[in-house]
Simulated scan of single mutants.
Amino acid sequence: MIGWLHKEEDGGKIYKAVTGGRVLYELWNRITGEDKLEVYRTAAISAIVDYIKKNPKASKEEITKVVEQQIIIFAARVESE
């Protein structure tokens, strides 16, 4: 797509820059896996929040256990990548 944009005479400079930036951003995410990390992070936080909502009277120790479990799950997912 970048090659096509550079061949087109009427392609706007802003459009070229935005498209080029988007391609670089996607490449960076694929190389580093940042998008997967964000998904795993969001899943862990959501699980913790869900537990707290379902158990509003949970003790600090119970919440700490759930947080520790979610951290272990998060780390295992990251390690498996």
Rank of each mutant, 00 (worst) to 15 (best):
A17W: 04
Y51V: 13
K65N: 15
Q69V: 00
A58F: 05
G11A: 14
I73L: 13
E62T: 03
E81H: 03
S59T: 15
K16H: 10
L5V: 04
E34M: 02
I14E: 12
G3N: 13
N55S: 11
G11V: 09
D35T: 01
E68Q: 15
V78K: 09
K13D: 15
I71K: 11
K65D: 15
K7C: 00
V49F: 05
K54F: 09
I73T: 12
G11N: 07
W28G: 02
E62S: 02
Q69A: 14
N55G: 07
M1T: 10
T64Q: 12
A76R: 15
E38A: 15
F74D: 03
K53P: 03
A58G: 08
G11I: 05
R41Q: 12
K57G: 04
G3D: 15
T19H: 00
A76T: 06
R41P: 01
L27C: 01
E61K: 13
I31N: 00
Y51A: 14
D50V: 05
W4I: 12
W28Y: 10
K53F: 10
Q70T: 08
G12H: 07
T32W: 04
W4T: 11
D50M: 07
V39K: 12
H6R: 06
K60P: 02
R77W: 06
R41I: 00
R22C: 02
G21L: 04
E79H: 15
L5S: 07
V23K: 11
A43C: 01
G21W: 05
D10N: 05
I45F: 11
A58W: 04
R30C: 04
K65P: 00
A17E: 06
Y51L: 09
T32D: 02
A43D: 13
R30M: 04
A47P: 01
A17F: 09
V23I: 14
I31K: 02
K13N: 11
L5Q: 09
V39R: 13
N55W: 06
E61W: 00
W28D: 06
